[in-house]
Simulated scan of single mutants.
Amino acid sequence: MNKTIFILTIGILTMLTSCGKSDPNKTVDEGKVEKNTYTSAEIGWTIEIPKGWTVIDKEKKQAANEKGLKAIEETIESKVDYSGLKNLIGFQKNQFNIFQSTSEPFELEYEGEWEENNSKLKEILFATYKNQGIKADSSATSIEKIDGLDFYTFSFTIYSPKGAVILKQLLYSRLINGYAFSANLNYNNDKDRDELLRVFRNSKFKIK
């Protein structure tokens, strides 16, 4: 199971806030931040941190991960080992408009294993939202090319109890350089959605 997106997606609903005072290089488990650019050596990934957005504090990301983990475990009625999960870059404009990314080692035992496990993602996510009393629906899964690589992608729309849209999520995932890589783009307006998409779609990846 691709646990990284499960934890990342559910955990984001804690609505993170940022103090904005931490050294950016102390907020990631792997990679480094130089000026407005984050680079992951393991993933071979480089992304711009947009101007006016703040790198998320590591402790806040960890708290979100733990809440997401708990929600998932309640849904699947089983413990989830996420000891290999690494927080990559996360940044936000405010509590609703957020980018987060993670990686986790993934050793293939048979061809198509990652794709098979990843196809279960929406079903479990939807069940977890429902179990948490959150109204949501999802889009069809598609493939989008970013820097020449195929990424699985789909979206979730989160509703208030009265049916108003309160948050949208775009999820991207790919097996890359031996890691299950996940990126989660959360937004509540078109301007911030476009900014998040711009920086992620302009990402650079280097396959080893």
Rank of each mutant, 00 (worst) to 15 (best):
L88C: 10
S138F: 13
I207F: 01
K191R: 10
G11Q: 11
G112Q: 11
G31A: 03
Y159H: 07
A41P: 05
F91M: 07
D147R: 10
I143F: 15
S173M: 14
S142P: 02
M15W: 12
K206D: 09
I72D: 07
I89V: 12
F96N: 01
S182R: 00
S78Q: 15
F154I: 06
I134T: 14
G84R: 05
D192W: 06
Q92K: 11
L8N: 15
N131T: 13
K191G: 01
E48L: 15
G68L: 09
E77V: 08
K122R: 03
Y110V: 03
V165I: 15
K204T: 13
P50E: 01
S173N: 15
Q132G: 12
S142K: 15
D29V: 05
L16S: 09
I124T: 09
S78P: 01
V165E: 11
F99L: 12
L8W: 02
I72F: 03
S203D: 02
L8A: 12
A71E: 04
N189R: 04
E34C: 02
G133C: 04
K67N: 10
L171W: 04
F151M: 02
I5R: 13
S40E: 04
T17R: 12
N118G: 00
G20Y: 12
K60L: 15
G31K: 03
T75H: 08
G90Q: 09
N97K: 00
L85P: 13
L85T: 08
K35H: 01
T54A: 08
S119R: 10
G178W: 09
A71V: 02
S139K: 04
E144K: 12
Q62E: 12
S203C: 04
T9F: 00
Y179H: 14
E48N: 15
Y38N: 08
E34I: 14
A140T: 01
N189M: 00
V55P: 00
K130M: 06
A41G: 00
Q169K: 12
Y172P: 08
R174H: 13
Y82F: 11
Q92C: 14
Y159A: 12
L197K: 07
E116Y: 15
F99K: 09
N97R: 06
S83A: 13
N117S: 14
F126K: 11
N131P: 08
F205R: 03
E42G: 11
F156L: 08
W53P: 08
G84S: 13
Y110Q: 07
K204Y: 05
F156R: 10
L171H: 13
A136S: 15
F96Y: 08
D29F: 04
E77T: 01
K168R: 14
Y82P: 00
I56G: 02
E66L: 01
N97A: 02
E48Q: 15
Y187N: 07
K3F: 07
